[in-house]
């Protein structure tokens, strides 16, 4: 689950866990309705944002807790705790208190604790939010691998889109308490269904105009006098306002004639050299914030600030979405 702060991700997660009561709708896990099942009987593992490791227990006692309250025998408990600790590579840390561990280690313990009783579903509420960037990326892969090895379902809440793209099979994009789109990462990026998703996932150029005509999958949109041929996705028909969404890397600078149906005159306002590519801000169709990513290939670096250029793109890459 991905979305900006306050979009309802955590509330939704808490409903799954049973700490919030849904006003309507059902929570169903494996065919069983869970609405009236209290949290401790749902058998859902959960990793909290601040880990919520019990500070008065050692790491091993923390891991043993879910097993003890299930009445598991001492020997079984010990064996499972040992296996879980080995899984997160903290085999020698069982006797320590959570406060004696680093952030990354605490995070692993929290993960192991949520997994040790073998739940069908594990909920994670921004589990990597408190870690620094390098450790976060490392932990993303670790969680992904553990997930692949154990094969349970994970519902993962984050507001970091790169984390969501890295870790997910499917992403639910939240805004204003509503799921905007539920799709695999590639679909979200390539085929956003509304302006919010297009804007939220990755970089995006927006052009706002009026739909003039529709012809099958394509439509003509008038943006400040320039008519753009676009891919018709999600608008209210002829005469309605529409936001055109266009990825910066799908725009070509100074294209050869006849390749693209959309070619417009533009003026280079700013150039930022980024090594593998150059970010080029141009003014086109009345939009001063239009970004073009120019690959740093042979013969492409001759543009200068203030140059008049032409930009072009395919109709399929320009998606006409809701205003």
């Amino acid at each position: 689950m991905l979305g900006p702060s306050g979009s309802g991700k955590t509330t939704c997660l808490m409903m799954l866990a049973g700490f919030e009561t849904p006003t309507h709708g059902k929570v169903i896990l494996g065919g069983n309705e869970l609405n009236n099942v209290p949290p401790h009987k749902r058998g859902i593992g959960m990793v909290f944002q601040n880990y919520a490791l019990f500070p008065h227990m050692t790491v091993a006692e923390n891991l043993a807790f879910p097993l003890e309250v299930r009445g598991m025998s001492k020997a079984d408990t010990e064996a499972k705790v040992r296996r879980a600790l080995d899984m997160v590579e903290l085999g020698d840390f069982g006797h320590r208190r959570p406060a004696q561990l680093s952030g990354g280690q605490q995070q692993r313990v929290a993960l192991a604790r949520a997994l040790v009783f073998e739940p069908d579903l594990v909920l994670m509420d921004e589990p990597l939010g408190a870690l620094d960037k390098n450790l976060r990326e490392q932990m993303q892969y670790e969680i992904k691998h553990i997930h692949e090895n154990l094969g349970m379902t994970v519902v993962y809440v984050t507001h970091d889109q790169s984390e969501a793209l890295t870790m997910s099979d499917r992403i639910a994009v939240f805004n204003d308490g509503v799921i905007q789109q539920l799709a695999p990462p590639a679909d979200l990026y390539e085929r956003p269904e509304n302006a919010f998703v297009a804007q939220f996932i990755g970089e995006n150029n927006r052009l706002v105009g009026e739909v003039k005509s529709i012809d099958g999958d394509t439509c003509m949109v008038d943006v400040g006098g320039n008519v753009i041929r676009s891919f018709s996705v999600n608008h209210d028909g002829v005469g309605s306002r529409s936001t055109l969404s266009l990825r910066p890397e799908r725009v070509t600078l100074n294209p050869a004639d006849g390749v693209f149906p959309n070619v417009f005159d533009a003026k280079v306002l700013e150039l930022i050299y980024l090594g593998d590519h150059i970010r080029c801000r141009v003014a086109v169709c009345g939009n001063d914030e239009f970004i073009v990513k120019v690959p740093n290939a042979h013969g492409q670096i001759s543009i200068k600030r203030g140059d008049d250029v032409r930009v072009g793109w395919q109709a399929e890459d320009c998606r006409a979405l809701d205003a």
Binding site: M46, A52, L53, F54, P55, V69, R70, A114
Partner: peptide, 26 residues
């Protein structure tokens, strides 16, 4: 933090068990 009690309950402890074993020692 209330998340300790939530954590205890999500791990399968009854509310009373969670209170006695997780809240009270703290």
């Amino acid at each position: 933090s209330p998340s300790y009690m939530r954590a205890a309950r999500s791990l399968g402890a009854k509310p009373a068990t969670a209170f006695v074993r997780v809240y009270m020692p703290q």
